[in-house]
């Protein structure tokens, strides 16, 4: 029994790591390029989850089909938020942007609670409970699909950042904003685009999460913190780093959930603090301060 729980735990952790990669990667690019900690990240994720929920509940749209819709909507929202709000104070001291995004999170969550109520909701397509067993290990289809879609989106992001002109402009802006400006990169638009990508990815993650787990307006905060821990674990500034960080974190979370269920978050948080103290360049060893 013990060993079955253990194997199942490993599989669960791996499946979870896909979604968490998607959660963290948007957070990571916003942090890396704009140098802000986007505390509203989880709130955008939550809105993405609700878009999927409403499309499914009201119009019967298949949750996987709603993925591009929720991502597109949140892309536009993110673009506007960055362009017309955060850009106004983006170069201010850390406390300002920190509080600003924190306040955005509060507003979004509060409005969501007000309009959609605070109770847990679930997206339940016909295939929600289905899965297959491999040996003794159960693998639900939706989680496997979420895992695969996450990896595909991560791959697409990598291709976009590496091989397109816009992606290169974003990366250049992150490395040296003055040089990028001299090269003709339009900084306000690039910032907005980066943030929009971050929120779109968060919304995508929200959609995938809503298929496997119940959702509620306060679900996001935990994901923001997870995204942060993952970036710290993996080191900032690389997509493989985020994937590695997500994998590590998933194992910590799944197994601390098995062994110390009531302290699940506390353990993850203490791991974060420990990593920050002991190895402030992340486990992947990338430069932390840029």
């Amino acid at each position: 029994m013990e060993s079955l729980q253990f194997t199942q735990g490993i599989v669960n952790a791996i499946l979870l790591s896909g979604t968490l990669t998607l959660v963290a990667i948007g957070f990571s690019i916003v942090w890396g390029i704009l140098n802000i900690i986007n505390l509203a990240h989880g709130a955008f994720l939550m809105v993405g989850a609700y878009i999927t929920y409403w499309l499914f509940t009201l119009y019967g749209v298949d949750p996987f089909l709603s993925l591009p819709i929720s991502m597109a909507i949140m892309f536009l929202v993110g673009y506007a938020v960055q362009r017309y709000l955060i850009n106004l104070v983006i170069r201010a001291p850390l406390l300002v942007t920190f509080l600003l995004t924190f306040a955005m999170e509060i507003v979004i969550i509060n409005l969501a609670t007000f309009f959609w109520k605070g109770d847990l909701r679930s997206v339940t397509p016909d295939y929600a409970g289905l899965g297959f067993t491999l040996g003794n290990v159960q693998i639900p289809y939706v989680r496997l699909a979420a895992f695969i879609i996450s990896l595909i989106l991560t791959g697409l992001l990598h291709v976009f950042m590496t091989y397109t002109k816009t992606g290169n402009a974003i990366r250049a802006t992150g490395m040296d904003i003055d040089a990028a400006r001299l090269q003709g990169v339009r900084i306000p638009q690039t910032y907005a685009l980066t943030y929009a990508l971050g929120t779109a990815l968060a919304a995508g993650a929200g959609t995938l999460i809503s298929i496997s787990f119940p959702i509620d307006p306060t679900m996001g905060g935990a994901y923001t913190l997870r995204a942060f821990v993952i970036c710290v674990l993996g080191g900032l500034g690389s997509i493989p780093g985020v994937m590695l960080g997500a994998l590590l974190f998933s194992f910590i979370e799944v197994f601390s959930g098995i062994w110390f269920p009531s302290l699940k978050d506390a353990i993850a948080l203490l791991v974060l603090v420990l990593v920050l103290i002991v190895r402030p360049s992340g486990i992947a060893g990338k430069a932390f301060y840029h």
């Binding site: 104070v89 001291p93 300002v96 942007t97 600003l100 306040a103 509060i106 007000f114």
Partner: peptide
């Protein structure tokens, strides 16, 4: 006077302060 929107009010205050007079 919408009781459940107090947090939104707090958030909007913070946003305004951060943008205009941090």
């Amino acid at each position: 006077p919408v009781g459940q929107l107090h947090a939104t009010i707090l958030g909007v205050i913070i946003i305004l302060v951060m943008v205009f007079t941090p």
